[in-house]
């Protein structure tokens, strides 16, 4: 039987859009993720990673604790570091980090990390629910983002692992340049309640670059 988002308690914030686009789904941990679409992978793709685990920690001891668990903590604010399996730790400030698994990797690890957040100065942030997670992937990503965002995201100014907490299409968004793969990519983390609106605005901006939705199995 085909996997459908409504089969799970946890659903992507935009799953009706994915079904409309004809997505095929696969079960990843506890939710359905769009794996491919009935068309060839577009040159500029938008991947919905929202159903995947991710977490945040915040508090005076948050970064110290995270490092003690063996996770790479970036030296500077607004920098990301990658884990061995391709996940990322996004350092948003002196007391806050956002942890993403690799799109096709260590979701369970992040899930486990989330369960072990101790409190007492190391507080859990429900980032899997507060933020939708999209990956904009393709050579035209920088030009496309320039239609939506006022921050200079050219690679010389915004290299791999750089983070901008900024406004994208007038929505507060965390933008992080992907650290894996040869193709440039931007991770976009934004208010989950605005996810449908954001998805539509991104696809609209991507049109002139022949952009479209991309499944996680289509990420090379």
């Amino acid at each position: 039987m085909a996997v459908t988002p409504e089969h799970f308690n946890r659903r992507s914030f935009i799953y009706p859009r994915l079904i409309e686009a004809g997505a095929e789904f696969a079960e990843v941990i506890d939710a359905a993720v769009a794996t491919r679409y009935p068309h060839d992978a577009p040159a500029l793709g938008l991947v919905d990673l929202s159903p995947l685990p991710r977490t945040g920690i915040k508090g005076p001891r948050a970064l110290e604790w995270l490092a003690a668990q063996g996770w790479p903590v970036p030296e500077d604010n607004n920098q990301a570091a990658h884990t061995e399996s391709g996940g990322m730790v996004l350092r948003l400030g002196n007391r806050e980090a956002f942890v993403l698994p690799a799109p096709r990797g260590d979701g369970e690890t992040v899930h486990t990390l989330e369960q072990s957040i101790p409190g007492d100065g190391v507080w859990h942030m429900p980032r899997r629910d507060s933020h939708a997670w999209f990956l904009l992937r393709g050579e035209a990503g920088v030009d496309c983002m320039a239609k939506l965002c006022g921050v200079d995201l050219r690679e010389a100014q915004f290299p791999r692992g750089a983070i901008a907490q900024t406004s994208v299409a007038r929505l507060n968004t965390i933008v992080c340049r992907d650290m894996a793969g040869a193709t440039p990519g931007f991770h976009l983390l934004a208010d989950s309640a605005s996810a449908i609106w954001f998805w539509d605005a991104l696809l609209d901006a991507m049109q002139e670059f022949d952009g479209g939705p991309l499944g996680i199995h289509e990420i090379d």
Partner: peptide, 10 residues
Amino acid sequence: PLNGWRNFGE
């Protein structure tokens, strides 16, 4: 001080 140069609108 945290995020660098940004448009005033932010």
